[in-house]
Design a protein around this nucleic acid. Sequence first.
DNA 1: AATTTGATTAAGTATACACTTAATCAAATT
DNA 2: AATTTGATTAAGTGTATACTTAATCAAATT
Lengths: 150, 150
Amino acid sequence: MSNAPMYRALSDDTRRRIVTLLLGHNYCVSELARVLQVSESAVSQHLKVLKEANLLTGEKRGYYMHYDIDREKLRALAREIGGMADLERQACTGSEGANCGCHTSTEGTDCGCRKSGDYCSGEVKFFCHGTPGTEDKVQLPMSPVPSRKE
Amino acid sequence: MSNAPMYRALSDDTRRRIVTLLLGHNYCVSELARVLQVSESAVSQHLKVLKEANLLTGEKRGYYMHYDIDREKLRALAREIGGMADLERQACTGSEGANCGCHTSTEGTDCGCRKSGDYCSGEVKFFCHGTPGTEDKVQLPMSPVPSRKE
DNA sequence: AATTTGATTAAGTATACACTTAATCAAATT
DNA sequence: AATTTGATTAAGTGTATACTTAATCAAATT
């Protein structure tokens, strides 16, 4: 399970408006179209994106569609982002070797790795990275880092 | 203040990886490029997007740039999304008139507006919207709804 | 001062995306 | 059964985006 489609879904202003509107009231597609000043077709396509992100379910009732935003999915995303903010800075493990001058901008100390005098001085040609092949093992809070590309 | 640029910034997989990586360690651009398997230029451009979303600050130290993710901005976004999830369903105020058949999919009741028999039956030609010009006054938790378009 | 080098910007490209109008679908009405 | 109608899909368009390589910038080294 990845939240990537949800990030995408919420990256568009119009879709965020749709989400907000649907949280407050029921709206049929044409009503949303009128409020948002776009075509019904455009609304339909936005709703599709929201559905694919599992943020929205739809059900036909009589003439109209009734949509329902999954608030729990929104909360899950909020938690993921909050978890991201709480991700701890990782101390160098030692596998970085003598080349790591891993100090944060605030703490002003090194992490046990050798550093030569000042921050990233001439001697320190590499800094703050693991040995090749290890540094991308950093874990995301929930969704794992995918292979590549959007 | 709007968080729109932050939604955009986080909508890309590679950028979310960059954020995660920078939260754990310092990385110079070329190191990020190696880890992410893209050009340094591409990384630089991603960093620019993150900066424009105020998620990232950069400072040159000696040879290298040191980047810093603003965790508080991430938390602010998490709160906004959480607040969105908590947005309460708005009862019709009456201004919707007789045309509103505003019932949620779960509660199964109307909201005081006239409804004729069943949900959205033939008589109810419009449903769940305010009178023209009022229904888009629904408020977002933090960021106000912009004029239009992404 | 000239050179090196990490980072950014410029220019170009292929794809993704947010729309449009027109056509299609399907449930409800007549 | 034919029609109406709200919603979706098809097809097309212009813009945004995520990359590339090449050129430029600026700090640090020589």
